[in-house]
Design a protein around this nucleic acid. Structure first.
Lengths: 113, 113
DNA sequence: TTATTACATGCGAATATTCGAATGTTACAA
DNA sequence: TTGTAACATTCGAATATTCGCATGTAATAA
């Protein structure tokens, strides 16, 4: 039961999505293909670190990479991943609003993207 | 950018979903409320282990628990979680089929729930 | 050829997850 | 009160993630 291959596979994908940086990468890529360097800039993080996170996403085949001369362009393989992230955003925004609301209605202008 | 609260929150929820046992628990609970003991039976796992995974899901408020005398009944808090799992199942089935297909069309009758 | 740009990978320390085994706790029955 | 059933929690060892830092590689420019 625990060794169910499909559930293992799902868990692996969820695991790959379970990091703020990788979520940010996928959100940026959702708007279109980007080079590793462009991602690095947008994220404001070390090159090696971004590359490592991209390696995680590549290993699970969540992103595709295309070499063009000097650069490597990344894109999201399957649009379903975008839908998963979108659903999760809806879910988390509701929960966050709820939690923040609980600790006082006076707490206004809490910006949640 | 990396410290974005919403992305951290999303990552935390994905992390909670990133285990085959917890996915199984949520799939069972998707069909209706179940006691911890009933889950233990359906999963065929140790009581303590199931309880630990339930604790992870509780900590993230993904499941709700209701005490009724001797037992504790669990249920999924928000139906969106079910939708996320459903989307992920669709995604993973497609990927698994594709991957298995790649290593020989002769491999038939590979049952993927 | 040498240098530089754009990425990727290897290594090690810090941190987090997971499981089994033992122990707690709570509700109820005897 | 004593016992038992149903869960929860704690502890420790094994394993996995993550980050910074250093190094490696492939394409192109000088």
């Amino acid at each position: 039961m625990q060794g169910d291959p499909l559930r293992r596979f799902k868990a692996d994908i969820f695991q790959a999505l379970a990091h703020p940086t990788r979520i940010a990468i996928l959100e940026f890529l959702g708007k279109g293909e980007l080079s590793a360097g462009a991602l690095m800039e947008k994220l404001g993080m070390e090159q090696a670190n971004v590359s490592q996170h991209l390696a995680v996403l590549r290993a699970k085949r969540i992103v595709a990479n295309r070499k063009a001369g000097n650069q490597v362009f990344y894109s999201v393989q399957d649009p379903i991943i975008g839908e998963v992230l979108s659903l999760m955003r809806t879910y988390c925004r509701a929960r966050l609003k709820e939690t923040l609301g609980m600790l006082g209605e006076t707490r206004k202008a809490v910006r949640v993207r």
